[in-house]
Design a protein around this nucleic acid. Sequence first.
RNA 1: CUGGGUGUAGCGUAGCUUGGUAGCGCGCCAGCAUGGGGUGCUGGAGGUCGAAGGUUCAAAUCCUUUCACCCAGACCA
Length: 478
Amino acid sequence: MAKGDKNVEAITARDVDFAQWYTDVVKKAGLVEYSSVKGCVILLPFGYALWEQIKDELDARFKATGHENVYFPMFIPESLLQREKDHIEGFAPEVAWVTHGGDEELEERLCIRPTSEVLFCEYFANAIQSHRDLPKKYNQWCSVVRWEKSTRPFLRTREFLWQEGHTAHATQDEADAQTLMMLHLYADFAEDYLAVPVLRGRKTDKEKFAGAKETLTIESMMHDGKALQMGTSHNFGDGFAKAFDITYTDKDNKLQHVWQTSWGLTARLIGGIIMAHGDDNGLVLPPKIAPIQVAIIPIASHKEGVKEKAYEIENLLSKNFRVKLDVSDRTPGWKFAEYEMKGVPVRIEIGPKDIEQGQAVLVRRDNREKVTIRLENIEQAVHNALQELHISLFETARQNRRNRTKEVFRVDELRETLDESAGFAKAMWCGDRACEDRVKEEATATSRLMPFKQMPIGDTCFVCGKPADKLVVWGRAY
RNA sequence: CUGGGUGUAGCGUAGCUUGGUAGCGCGCCAGCAUGGGGUGCUGGAGGUCGAAGGUUCAAAUCCUUUCACCCAGACCA
């Protein structure tokens, strides 16, 4: 152990114990604190800032595609929740109930929304009369509650922040197009903004949303090879419309049911970013969502001109980047480690020797290489470093996915493959639910998705051997 | 919900078997020096042992219940 290391509260090495590493990073990077209620966490400023970055960007994209924000209540009367049979069956086991107001027992208990489909449906049934009232394209940012049995920060909490979009359309085609559009919006966001490569496709009936006709999904792979669902877009067809009697009068004065979609994405994404990009030194944040993109660390700041130069650089870079200049009296080494733990993409070191030479030291978070740059080029150098870092994160994650994706032709082969090393496995499937259940039992794997881009690797089901035309990606998921 | 583990100062821990009201390291505060990878020295402050109940003259220590956290499952975003 090197001198000084006794002060380091080291995190568990990523490849030694991934689960423990994750917990360490979440705590040491100052993202969350546990509360006194199981599965409910406090999002600390830095953790919440990540959510704000995600929220702001997505919100802008939603608005650019014609959606409006609304806010619906958090309580749902039990009778309302029960209107759609599959929906209630899917959610009943994990809803939290409010039974009392003060000391008085309520006549009808209220559930705390696990999702708000039924509330939107109730409203739509009332608000939609004519084809002129369509489409309705609503979104809300809120938290929902699901009484999960096992919990962990970001990945599975009992209360979590999310966004839920709810739309109603005049035609099936419109609803189909909406479902697909939102999925691609999510996918583009994940790749362009979070630098997390995703697979786009459809869920099997077994895995689709309770009450949906079809669920589209984006699936990503974490560094340890396990899968994480990053967002889903559901096509309801006219199922909910019929259950809630949501009708409109069309141009020919005929009564029609509407066609609906819903789509959602949660603060779980933050867990995805951590597990996709993080390393043994902590978080590694994709530049576009990093609350701090550049940390400026003055060296020997008591010396003549150092602070002044540091402020100068801060002012200059602040025009185009999110910058943090740390003039606290902690030592440079402490600051280096701290901002690395927090995943800050680029660090600028500026000290007396640099100033003499008209230069600064730039360090990229992912490779931690120190590069000397000319002060007059600093904006360009930071810009380039951020851009290269994004590409590098994306490519590294994609390479990991490539390395961990196999093709399998028997269920026992799937099990062996995943036991040896977690990852994705492609296999042909006949479409039979029984086969999917067998995969779960015998290989403890679930179907992640049926990619839009189907590239068959055979023509028989890897479970039952009957003719099969569906390529499914299987894996073990968070 | 099942199985295993843990809970003592902000963090990490010793003490628990063989009851006698807490010790260490880091961090924190003050000062001086230092400053290019978690800086050094000196001096301080901070806990009543997750919570509740019980046994006892006496409980961090023994018993019961309960809550939370971690790991692996089952369930799920």
